[in-house]
Write a protein that binds this DNA or RNA. Structure first.
Length: 999
RNA sequence: GCCCGGGUGACGAAAUGGUAAACGUACUCGACUCAAAAUCGAGCGCCGCAAGGCUUGGGAGUUCAAGUCUCCCCCCGGGCACCA
């Protein structure tokens, strides 16, 4: 544990260092203003920012209408309004989205930037309990506060579309959509073991358990048997996976993470028949007419002949039955029962700890039969096999699976190889079109007399380092061949054969010296020198390579080829399972075939079936808490579960005093008799409401649809509105939601698409993840660490424009960065300089300024579209620096520049824009266009290299032809000096950039 | 262990295979000032008085040319983790 530097952030301190008056350019106005005329008023963000914020709000500057030209919809994950307010982590994506949307507006798009409140959930409820206010009250306060913050940041949200998941007018539709799932059978009730957070006192979905801990509060999750509602997300596993292919603009990392979470694996189910000790048991037939059997799931059916035992998970039904009081097939029933109890006592984390030694117990009295070869094999129960995946039973192939190997070693079970290792040399791969020659070859390891070193061959021509290698000739066996090669290549003649290193392995490569592709059947052979007697090496041999003595422990460093590691392992007596693919052996009629291609054939030959499995599990959709959407169902003793009628939606949360979680697995709503007891909508008899509520993720699973049609009283979101706005063009958010909200909402959308309630399959065209903002100490911001920086404090000191700009300048949007005030003065200075440019406005400007402006227009536009906000800011700084060289700029250029800057620093640019005499807001203006012709200067600086090293710079005319450039370069005195009398082999000219002279 | 990102000055960082360190911070010097701050101007990777040489985590390779491409290794961040 290294000591961590404590956070040093203290707004007070910074205020001392940078008090308002120091930051404002009280004095510098004199130094810039050319004396005469009126004096420029100092830049004062406090005054300016408030003024424009309220004007934009009252004039509805950022509100958009439906069906109003080319659209863009920019979404940012809507915030949870916590008691602590919005933090730096919110600011980053919110400002990025704001910059981008404002840019689209100026580009002429009807660009929507909506916002709302994801206000249900545990934190709100816990906060309310702690502060002894009703969550509905605290939520209202928190929202008001967060809204104030957002406005003070200068964001351009469309407030006419504001939503709030806890508003009955909103959750009415959440409930309606839930019923849609229910009616289609995709929401179902089940009693069973679920993840339970003892602190939050509620069940959790798989996605909410991270490293065995509650995603919200970090408490270790327990298992509890409960009645819960589930969403059948597994029905959509394939569609969720396939849909990723339709999202070319999503980041690779996000797609990979979702793909892993869905965890598709294609394999086979194969039945293993059982043999009992008692013949009577063997005659029994199951309901399917078949003898007793265990189906196993495997992705490596090609290794079926290598199965040496079977393993069942402790939760496997067969184990449960075999150990109950009604059955008596096991000879060691008590031992097995004891083992099951031991397993049960372990937590999930203990069970899955990787370094843990594998345990298990043989199921004595029962055997399984390998359907491929009829071998009778033992059966085990062991907790390295999971009950919840596949069939809960595996066929163990210790020769080709690490876990099985480990288990087999521990319990002394047979290990049978069925695949010969195969390697392709990727540094020197087989070349397409070349002939493939298959040949027996040898790798000979020759030990010295003392036995502490072996011979290594260093090839002079090919940059290889090998053992003695070579082919086995016709009529020789491998030992003879190896001995012959060894003597030829090394000259040593007194060699004693020691051993052969196991079976053949296969290696494919391009044999450069023979110009063919080699498919080598390699055998490792070990010799020991009895004496050092040696023949003279032929000249041919000694030209080819030199002989080195390698210490045994350095062998691996000397010879690095992958296939050789297997031989070296065998040489040192290290046993390892081979998990790759290769040639099949010991497998009857399949021998000699490639393991990748025979899976299906083996499965067919034993009557198995090809199946696909997913790691994804159904989504536990109910919570035993108060502050969530009530599930709109009624339990009737006669009619069963009856959905609440549409006209009776929303089912409102009852206003109650006591809403603390019970911890019994029942929701606090269950105690509210007045609310619970209702009439059955069907038979009108006595019935009870469902008392579980929906999870945190319900309201956010469809919220973007509501933005499109926020005021609709009749439906969730009209298809007409959706047709215009869908899909969401850009979705800013965090990586932490990849397998939570982002997956859940894709699932809802895919389902609603199938129900024809939405118009597109995938809701978000492009996902833009941001790196998290760390505290000044480089650690995750958290109250307990005391390194939380409040954006409001920063704004108070520097102003919103400076803070926004710095937030964007801090680093690449996708990378995590530590919030550090160290550099923020730089962006403030930049804005001061932009402000002071008001004094530079004149009729003329230098050509440099015009060129710089056009370069900046191009760069800022491109950078915003690729979310490279940091470099957009720096290019604007370069422009301002250029203007400061000549201290004059035309009004037109200044206005163009202000428009670029306005998306980052809206307040100040709006203020100057109006000062310049514009009557309308800058945001009704137009994004400037650049002229290609201004981007190019007449002269360019070209670098002259000699052999790749820079020797001189030339200033030459743009686009002059290569020959002319070459001549100029060769005439340059510096170049002449370096080239001297040397012969010039080549000259490479890269237009307008570089000339490289090779001598 | 596997899968994604990363590793570049004192620091945040930039670089279609083509001048490494743009822009900003910090620092140094100069101007202004009685002085300081602010501001303006200049400098600022390392070694060297200089000429010049070296430099993008380490090692190899491809190329006229590598931070960028290929292979091996080390380190940091994130995700998954006995998924058969």
């Amino acid at each position: 544990m290294k000591p961590k530097k404590k956070a040093e952030y203290d707004p007070k301190k910074i205020e001392d260092k940078w008090p308002q008056e120091k930051l404002s350019n009280k004095n510098n106005k004199e130094s810039f203003s050319k004396g005469k005329q009126k004096k420029l008023v100092a830049y004062n963000p406090v005054k300016i920012e408030k003024k424009w914020q309220s004007e934009w709000l009252t004039k509805k500057t950022f509100e958009v209408k439906n069906n109003n030209g080319k659209k863009k919809m920019v979404l940012v994950e809507f915030p949870f309004p916590s008691g602590a307010g919005l933090h730096m982590g919110h600011m980053r994506p919110f400002i990025a989205g704001d910059v981008t949307t404002k840019y689209f507006k100026l580009k002429g798009f009807n660009a929507m930037y909506p916002i709302g409140w994801d206000a249900f959930g545990l934190p709100a409820e816990n906060y309310a309990i702690k502060n002894k206010v009703h969550p509905s009250v605290s939520t209202k306060q928190n929202i008001a506060n967060a809204k104030k913050q957002l406005l003070s940041w200068g964001t351009g949200y469309d407030w006419s579309r504001e939503i709030n998941t806890t508003d009955p007018e909103y959750y009415k539709w959440t409930q309606k959509l839930f019923l849609e799932f229910y009616k289609t059978g995709l929401a179902y009730e089940k009693f069973g073991e679920v993840n339970w957070c003892p602190k939050d006192k509620t069940g959790l979905a798989n996605e909410e358990v991270i490293d065995g801990k509650c995603e919200r509060c970090g408490t270790t999750v327990e298992k509890k048997n409960l009645r819960q509602w589930y969403m059948k997300i597994t029905d959509y596993a394939e569609k969720l996976l396939e849909g990723l292919n339709d999202l070319p603009e999503w980041p690779h990392a996000v797609k990979v993470q979702q793909e892993n979470w869905i965890g598709k694996s294609e394999g086979a189910e194969i039945n293993f028949e059982l043999r009992f000790k008692n013949e009577e048991d063997n005659k029994r037939r199951g309901p399917d007419g078949k003898p007793a059997h265990i189906p196993v799931f495997t992705t490596r059916a090609d290794t079926l002949f290598g199965v040496t035992y079977l393993v069942l998970a402790p939760e496997h039904l067969w184990v449960t039955l075999a150990t109950d009081d009604n059955h008596d097939v096991l000879e060691n029933k008590n031992e097995v029962k004891k083992y099951l109890e031991q397993v049960k006592a372990k937590t999930d984390i203990e069970r899955s700890a990787l370094d843990k030694e594998k345990t298990g117990v043989e199921l004595k009295g029962v055997k399984a039969i390998n359907p491929a070869n009829g071998e009778v094999i033992p059966m085990f129960v062991a907790d390295y096999v999971l009950g919840g995946y596949g069939t809960g039973a595996i066929m163990a192939v210790p020769a080709h699976d690490e876990r099985d190997f480990e288990f087999a070693k521990k319990y002394n079970l047979p290990i049978k190889e069925v695949i010969a290792p195969h390697f392709t040399d990727w540094t020197n791969p087989p070349q397409p079109g070349k002939k493939v020659i298959r040949r027996k070859t040898i790798h000979a390891i020759i030990e010295n007399v003392e036995g502490d070193k072996v011979i290594g061959i260093k090839w002079k021509k090919y940059n290889w380092q090998t053992f003695v290698i070579g082919g086995v000739e016709e009529g020789e066996d491998v030992i003879e061949g190896a001995k012959r090669e060894a003597m030829e290549e090394t000259g040593y003649i007194d060699l004693e054969f020691v051993k052969i290193l196991g079976d053949e392995i296969h290696s494919e490569y391009f044999a450069t010296h023979k110009d063919v592709n080699r498919y080598a059947d390699v055998t490792g052979v070990v010799f020991r020198m009895r004496s050092e007697s040696r023949n003279e090496l032929s000249e041919e041999e000694s030209d080819k390579h030199e002989i080195l003595w390698i210490e045994k422990n350095k062998i691996r460093d000397f010879y690095k080829g992958a296939e050789v590691h297997v031989l070296i392992d065998r040489y040192f007596g290290i046993e390892k399972p081979f998990i790759g693919h290769g040639e099949i052996k010991n497998s009857d009629k399949f021998d000699g075939l490639k393991s990748e291609v025979i899976k299906t054939k083996i499965v067919e030959s034993v009557g198995g079936k090809i199946v696909t499995k997913y790691k994804l599990r159904d989504w536990v959709f109910s919570r035993q808490r108060y502050w969530g959407e009530p599930i709109p169902l009624i339990h009737c003793p006669k009619c069963g579960i009856v959905p609440v009628a549409d006209k009776d939606l929303p089912v409102k949360l009852p206003e109650v005093k006591n809403y603390e979680p019970t911890g019994t697995g029942e929701s606090p709503l269950a105690a509210i008799d007045k609310w619970v007891n209702v009439k059955c909508p069907k038979c009108k008899g006595k019935a009870k409401r469902e008392t579980n509520t929906m999870p945190q993720w319900a309201g956010s699973s469809w919220y973007w649809l509501r933005y499109m049609d926020a005021k609709n009283k009749k439906e969730v979101s009209s298809l007409k509105a959706q047709k215009y706005w869908s899909p969401v063009d850009l979705y800013f958010g965090g990586m932490e939601h990849t397998t939570l909200h982002l997956l859940y909402s894709r699932f809802w959308n895919l389902f609603l698409y199938d129900r024809k309630l939405v118009t597109v399959k995938e809701p978000y065209k492009k996902r833009v993840p941001h790196g998290i903002i760390l505290g000044p100490d480089g650690e995750k911001m958290s109250k307990s660490r005391g390194n939380v920086v409040n954006p409001d404090d920063v704004i108070k000191i520097y102003g919103a424009d400076t803070t926004r700009l710095y937030m964007m300048f801090l680093g690449p949007h996708g990378a995590q960065v530590a919030w550090n005030d160290k550099g923020i003065v730089g962006t403030r200075r930049f804005l001061e300089r932009v402000w002071a440019m008001q004094d530079f406005v004149s009729k003329k400007e230098a050509d440099d300024v015009t060129a710089a402006l056009h370069k900046t227009i191009k760069k800022v536009g491109e950078d915003i579209e690729t979310f490279s906000f940091n470099t957009a800011v720096s290019s604007m700084m370069i422009f301002v620096n250029t203007v400061y060289e000549s201290k004059s700029v035309t009004k037109k250029s200044y206005e163009s520049f202000l428009t670029l800057l306005s998306v980052f620093a809206p307040h100040m640019t709006e203020e100057i824009w109006r000062n310049l005499g514009n009557k309308q807001t800058i945001f009704k203006g137009k994004w400037p266009t650049f002229k290609e012709s201004y981007l190019k200067s007449e002269k360019v600086t070209v670098v002259v290299q000699v052999n790749g090293k820079i020797k001189a710079e030339l200033s030459i005319d743009r686009d002059i032809d290569d020959e002319a450039a070459k001549t100029l370069a060769l005439e340059n005195p510096k170049v002449v000096e370096f080239v001297g009398q040397s012969e010039i082999k080549r000259v490479i000219v890269v237009k307008n950039r570089l000339i490289n002279i090779v001598i």
